[in-house]
Write a protein that binds this DNA or RNA. Structure first.
Lengths: 340, 340
DNA sequence: GATGAGAATGTAAGCGCTTACACTCGCGCC
DNA sequence: GGCGCGAGTGTAAGCGCTTACATTCTCATC
């Protein structure tokens, strides 16, 4: 038997409690402004009718949604999961709701998602990375919607960022690798087009080579989507060249795990026959054998700080300064010390 | 220099194009109903002003959002990622937007998220699993919001489901294990309270034991959250008993991977010293060495079919029949054949 | 050229909420 | 006793859109 009562509105509650709609609204939004006795009556009516405010109407009238939107490049693997979790926890603690969308690393889709989230009234937006069509930032500015970019640190940009320096991080890891005696270095990079993290990591590695007198332009680089299978294929490709690398450095841990599998499938052992490094330090990196040497990124802290910073801007407590977080090299078994 | 023009509205567009708001609205929603020439004029104005419809207002007036909400237990690992991805692709292809929230496996949080999504006008909801407080289904019914449960197949329930039979799947895997000569079987289960998939899998395994004359009540079972670390701890716990199991069957792949690590940490080799099985067949299961024997679940198909089915209900093309998908046992290296 | 059927467009009534402003009331004070 | 004041509540004007209904236009027809 379907329940044909329609959904209760503010009016219904007001009538049931014998007060005006204004009073009901106040009970819900600033309870201290209505006297105990009335409030009780209203709350009872709310309870009895099972009233839930209509979000659309509320947004339209109040211009605030207490909703934050986040668009991440992918949900297929766990790269962004931990940070997002922390982000959402912090948001929740402060009374905000998180709406998540993913862009499959495609700027066009990201743009669509941004519009969808904005249309839904997001009070602020969290995006990954920083490089995108200026028109998007223009669009958001015209609507006064604060944006915060995570996973990068770009103090000079107009939009605030919360993250680390991808280029420097990769340079540091590269230096470490070189210090271990590696000279024949190859890279499996994510697709750099439209991905500032991927580009920065590639450039960072070239930096390291250059400052050690190694020809960076001669370094073999394969660009491929962040997937295990493509990582495996790329490694096999690299290891079939005449001048086999002694180390294959990957743009992230997913590629690294793929590379590891690729090596195993070729009958190569890691790190004896070839070393492998990753980036991000997601759980995956510690699951495989050998565990992956990688750049540790403070996922949890990044998520939490991003939430703090974004809400501060939304609530006009700050105008948005960038926050730099530290990344560290995480040494594990997949990288061999040739000097040892 | 901040842009102080306020966000353009339908009215602005109408004025700019020299037509009424109704015409503009029609241009946007049913373009075939307005003549070419007018439409062009309107579209130009839309473009020029950078107009984006206000979602809240649209919802309030039209009672439709073309938004589907999904609440998954966790985003921390990839269990639901593939299916969700397929779900979202199908939705997108049909003009719907997906809003995702996660509940951390907590019914209270799930309920909160349901309300948040409903308040935001979700036209339909995708939930994982089927057992929950009847009051929630009541709440949704009163608002005529279709719900569809995935990851389970429950043809007799009032709500439609798209998934597979967890109990039978685990029974089949259990039978396979028994056929391989295992008799000392232990299980690491997810938390069964409030999780019908976890309970069904446990019961399914007991079914298998029973029908082979093994005392199911004597089977050691450890319930623990779906995490790698807890899986590792549970395995070590089980392997320290007097009567060590020859196989540890896990409630999902995350636990299985944890168990594998736990075994390795104890110096046990898998599958020589102990066999391990998982459930779900997520990428993780193929990344570790040895690869995990598990129950393969048609993630992609489940996501896609769920989207199809849910939209059909939302658009009143169907009243919602459950769809059963097939799971299959995926044999890999982590399970040893004792007869061999 | 008058007529009428459709097609194209306009008019205006809400949708459910928030909030500025108006009102009422009881109190302390001169 | 009259006054001002502030706390508590009510009134009603939107917020930006969709859509039923009314109106106007366009032509094919007679």
């Amino acid at each position: 038997m379907p329940d044909l009562r329609s959904v209760p509105t503010l009016d219904d509650v007001a009538r049931a409690a014998g007060v005006s709609t204004a009073t009901v609204s106040r009970c819900l939004n600033s309870p201290e402004r209505v006297v105990e006795q009335t409030r009780k009556r209203v709350m009872n009516a709310v309870e009895a009718l099972g009233y839930t405010p209509n979000f659309g109407a509320r947004v339209m009238a109040a211009k605030r949604t207490f909703t934050i939107g986040a668009i991440i490049p992918t949900m297929e693997n766990a790269i962004f999961a931990r940070a997002l979790q922390a982000f959402q926890e912090e948001l929740h603690a402060r009374g905000y709701t998180l709406l998540v969308a993913s862009s499959a690393y495609q700027p066009k889709i990201e743009e669509e998602q941004i519009r969808a989230l904005v249309a839904r009234g997001a009070d602020g937006l969290l995006l990954i990375g920083h490089d995108r069509d200026p028109a998007i930032y223009e669009y958001l500015r015209a609507r006064s919607i604060p944006v915060l970019s995570a996973w990068v640190y770009a103090p000079d940009s107009e939009q605030p960022t919360v993250g680390f320096d991808n280029r420097r991080s990769m340079r540091v890891l590269g230096q470490q690798v070189i210090d271990f005696g590696h000279r024949r270095i190859a890279m499996i990079s994510g697709i750099t087009r439209g991905n500032d993290r991927a580009s920065a990591r590639l450039v960072g590695l070239r930096d390291a080579l250059q400052s050690n007198g190694i020809d960076a332009d001669a370094m073999p680089v394969i660009e491929t989507p962040y997937e295990i299978d493509t990582g495996a294929a790329a490694l096999q490709n690299l290891m079939q060249s005449d001048r086999k690398p002694t180390v294959v450095m990957c743009g992230n841990d997913v590629l690294a795990v793929g590379a590891l599998r690729g090596a195993r499938e070729m009958g190569l052992s890691v790190p004896e026959d070839v070393s492998i490094t990753g980036f991000d330090d997601i759980e995956l990196a510690r699951i495989v054998t050998p565990q992956i040497t990688t750049v540790h990124v403070p996922h949890h802290e990044m998520g939490r700080k991003a939430a703090e910073a974004l809400i501060d801007i939304v609530e006009k407590r700050s105008t948005g300064a960038s926050v730099e977080l530290k990344s560290t090299v995480q040494m594990r078994g997949s990288l061999r010390n040739l000097n040892g």
